[in-house]
Nucleic acid binder design. Structure first.
Lengths: 242, 242
DNA sequence: GAGTGGTCTAGACCACTCC
DNA sequence: GAGTGGTCTAGACCACTCC
């Protein structure tokens, strides 16, 4: 009856898995084999306690963890069910530019074209949820990979949240890293577009002809307040996102 | 002494939070206030049991869940510590094109330009981990938002995994949705680039001039085997990723 | 040996659902 | 009222670390 509590005799020195892990494996195995398909009602905790000879708290922990992981759904007073198949969202991670460059085995370098206080213009004010003419910090960086420009970063920062921003030395750090270090609770939203380069971008990226670029608009939020907005422009022929 | 077990007198009808949730809140509150900074060693379970008048299993559950969530780190025989601040990765979700279009309140439509068996060409073979000349399924779709073309989808599918692919009716579903339904364990990798449209893309997207486009290369994996590779081309002036 | 966290038990009381 | 899952306890044994 206690067919659990298995020792692994092939590897006598490996410690046995905890009972709750064995229960989790047992449930997952039944799901994978098709024995317990989607929407199937599992045996009750009480039944599993009897059948497996394991105490209810241990059974409960296993089922709770599988529920937290999305494999099961539990309804008090009703029962435990195999969760409906959920299509996992296709996500990509937007890594920091210096990370990307270093992962190429290349040298990252950042030119600070300006870092100043200015009255915010109406369209930027709308993005920052500020009123036109208010003072805002603005920075304009060009990031280079082994000397070759690969990204323009045009950024607005709300002085309320980061009064020290315009006095920061960005030789060793990037603006994103700096902001993320200060606010660990930061969240981000992004809009990604493609556009051809204009004269300004051609100049700063040292492009000779009009070039297709990836344009990322990144807003950084602290709760429902906007800390910073950045427009990142990457030439499509020099760099890609993975 | 049992300063926990608080009833919320302002909302007398709301049930009190479970004790383990109260312990979690207590720990998080101390972390947020700066009382317990990063790397701080928390009181031991035994101490918390004494101080809070709550049983060890309940204390343990609270600390375990905070550990799983990344707030704490625990070392057996040593203690419990506030985790080092972790910068959360900046992720974006690549939603299905029909989802995006429908979220605009628009009508999605898909033209099937071809859906056929062909001998795979060398460069596509390399992407699919097949050998040149092997038979592969290839489809070429144009997705439209209220009639306007917004995405070209040029896709290779491995016949071994999806023998039924070329007989599928893509009037009601998209290839991605179809593949994801069949294989719930699918994982994906993406490369995103910007490029200007060529004559082929101009034709299928009904573009009159050369246009900057987002190009997404999506590989779909089942374990370490490639099921499908798709090249998605989206005109930058008609659609964006959020 | 003292202190830490990791696991497990047998039992309890409860809210909830279904009949 | 019977059955379900949600929580909580008091106690136990253990592996591990540090001295």
């Amino acid at each position: 009856m206690p067919y659990f509590r298995t020792q692994n005799d092939d590897h006598p020195y490996s410690p046995p898995k905890p009972l709750y892990e064995q229960v989790k494996s047992y449930v997952l195995k039944n799901m994978e084999s098709g024995e317990w398909p989607a929407y199937f009602q599992l045996p009750s905790e009480h039944t599993l306690v009897r059948e497996m000879g394991i105490s209810r708290m241990t059974i409960h922990r296993a089922l709770r963890e599988l529920t937290q992981a999305g494999y099961l759904e539990r309804i008090q007073g009703v029962g435990t069910f195999v969760a409906a198949p959920k299509k996992q969202p296709k996500k990509i991670e937007l890594r920091e530019i210096d990370d990307i460059i270093r992962s190429h085995g290349a040298r990252h370098q950042c030119d600070v074209h300006f870092l100043q206080v200015e009255p915010i213009e109406p369209d930027a004010a709308a993005m920052m949820a500020m009123t036109a003419g208010e003072e805002v910090y603005r920075s304009y960086f060009v990031h280079r990979e082994n000397g070759l420009p690969v990204m323009v970063e045009d950024r607005y920062v709300h002085p309320k949240f980061m009064p020290e921003y315009i006095e920061t030395d960005f030789a060793d750090t990037t603006a994103d890293t700096h902001i993320s270090k200060k606010f660990t609770q930061l969240s981000h939203s992004h809009v990604i577009q493609a556009a051809v380069s204009n004269a300004e971008i051609n100049h700063f990226l040292e492009l000779e002809t009009t070039t297709a670029c990836i344009v990322i608009n990144r807003k950084s939020w602290l709760g429902d307040e906007i800390v910073s907005v950045a427009r990142l422009v990457l030439p499509g022929n020099r760099i890609q996102l993975t």
